[in-house]
Amino acid sequence: MSEANSMNLISALSQEELQAIDAEIAHVPYRDAVAIDALKIVQAHRGWVSDESLSAIAAHLHMSADELDGIATFYNLIYRRPVGDKVILLCNSISCWIKGCENLQQRITEELGVELGETTSDNRYTLLPVTCLGACDKAPVMMVGDELHEDLCEESIIRILGGSTTP
């Protein structure tokens, strides 16, 4: 990629995002070592990582967009499409499945009016499955935003979501 094309791509990132990414780069021997951090920085500012943002990050890190996309899609906490204000990650690991996560998924779907992969019409929540949240001894579990909720039951789902949010 030419220097001019690279600079055009990078201009899609804000100065604040570039400064935060550069601060991370200062701590590592290779620019691409901050790929995940750079994706998180942009996501923190924008809520998700668009194709344009991903290409800009890749150009800034001197790596290909395909290589960075492989990293972004590997990690389930990097969102490659818009999500709601809070993401609900419902664990569907074997431990949570045995403890009834399917019933909890149905309750969340009823409560919010969305299926897995969808966002509520008010943009408050996005419901996503996740293979494991690392709390198998407290199954079933889910994360709402940054909060882990353990030993879930239908009543706790209602309490956590604050009662019915459907119109």
Rank of each mutant, 00 (worst) to 15 (best):
V28E: 10
T73E: 13
R124M: 14
V144M: 12
N8W: 00
Q19I: 02
L116Q: 04
E67L: 12
I160M: 07
S93E: 05
I25N: 01
I94Y: 06
C132W: 01
D32K: 14
E147A: 12
E3I: 12
I158N: 07
S53T: 08
T119Q: 09
G47C: 09
L112D: 03
I108Y: 04
L77R: 13
L61P: 03
Y30V: 12
I88Q: 01
G70L: 06
E154I: 01
D51K: 13
E147L: 05
V87L: 00
L104M: 00
E111R: 09
L128R: 12
V34I: 11
P167C: 00
N8G: 00
E150I: 11
D37M: 09
I57C: 04
N92M: 14
D122H: 11
A38H: 06
L152A: 07
I57V: 14
L148M: 15
T73N: 13
G113R: 08
E150C: 12
T73H: 11
C132R: 02
L128G: 05
C132A: 03
S164L: 10
M63S: 11
P82N: 08
L161E: 01
H62Y: 06
A59F: 02
L77M: 04
N8S: 09
D122S: 13
E154T: 03
S95W: 02
E118Y: 07
E3S: 14
C132F: 02
L112T: 05
E110H: 13
R46C: 10
E16W: 06
E67G: 09
I98E: 12
S95A: 15
D122A: 11
P140W: 09
S121A: 14
I98A: 12
M1K: 06
V114Q: 04
L68F: 02
D85L: 10
I98Y: 10
Q106A: 14
W48N: 12
L77T: 13
L127C: 04
C153R: 03
Q105Y: 05
S156L: 11
D51N: 14
R159H: 08
W97C: 06
A56G: 04
V42L: 02
D146T: 10
T131I: 00
L39A: 03
P129T: 08
W48A: 11
Y75V: 10
L116T: 06
G117L: 08
T126G: 08
S121W: 01
I36C: 01
R46Q: 15
Y75C: 02
